[in-house]
């Protein structure tokens, strides 16, 4: 069976790099006693796909992960029982085997950037962003960005925010990815829990 999991990666877990994070998921499934289907070939690996890898240091509030399982009873509870602190499965949606790849569903990504000090306007990011910036909203010391993904390419929110703070090392922004968005599309049925729709 094919499942799309929605999960959060918060606090210290944000600093686990993507490759190590993938290994960690394999371990978590084994610990939970859930068997993942393996890829064919010389060096079989569990079939697992992240909607969009998260940069090291970014938190994720609603990330998506696609897995193929032999059985899927109480997956959410079983996984959460063995998860390290900061990692939590929020929901699981079973999708048909013919469902589009989770990586192909991603049309936009939303981020919340904590700024070193408040800004009067976010105009400073305009030029860097080009077509990728779909929306920007300032709320006190927070900048909310909605960034387009096209052919699996996008732009980094820390680079955009950095344009407003010359001289500030962009690695120092605290950033959360708040959501993964898809365009309205009749192929996305059922709509996986945690996948948001662009209006």
């Amino acid at each position: 069976m094919r499942l799309i999991l929605s999960y959060a990666k918060l606090g210290p877990m944000a600093f686990v790099a993507h490759l190590d994070f993938q290994q960690l998921w394999w371990r978590i499934f084994r610990l939970a006693g859930i068997t993942l289907e393996m890829t064919q070939g010389y060096n079989p690996r569990p079939k697992m796909r992240f909607a969009s890898p998260l940069a090291t240091g970014f938190q994720g509030e609603g990330e998506l992960l696609e897995v193929f399982l032999e059985e899927g009873q109480n997956v959410v509870e079983r996984l959460n029982l063995v998860m390290p602190q900061g990692l939590k499965v929020l929901a699981a949606t079973q999708v048909p085997l013919a469902f589009p790849k989770v990586t192909a569903l991603v049309d936009a990504l939303a981020y919340r950037v904590k700024l070193p000090h408040p800004l009067d306007s976010h105009e400073c990011i305009g030029r860097e962003a080009g077509d990728y910036l779909l929306n920007a909203k300032l709320e006190g010391q927070e900048l909310n960005l909605l960034l387009k993904v096209e052919n699996q390419r996008t732009i980094r929110p820390d680079i955009l925010a950095g344009a407003c703070f010359p001289g500030f090392d962009a690695r120092g922004f605290l950033i959360s990815r708040t959501g993964i968005f898809a365009r309205q599309n009749e192929k996305i049925s059922p709509l996986p829990a945690g996948l948001l729709l662009l209006d």
Partner: peptide
């Protein structure tokens, strides 16, 4: 720690929190 970890290589070395 959150303020310095983004600037170091392999920050997960310093967070604990393992299974």
């Amino acid at each position: 720690l959150q303020a310095i970890l983004p600037f170091v290589e392999k920050p997960a070395r310093y967070i604990g929190n393992e299974i």
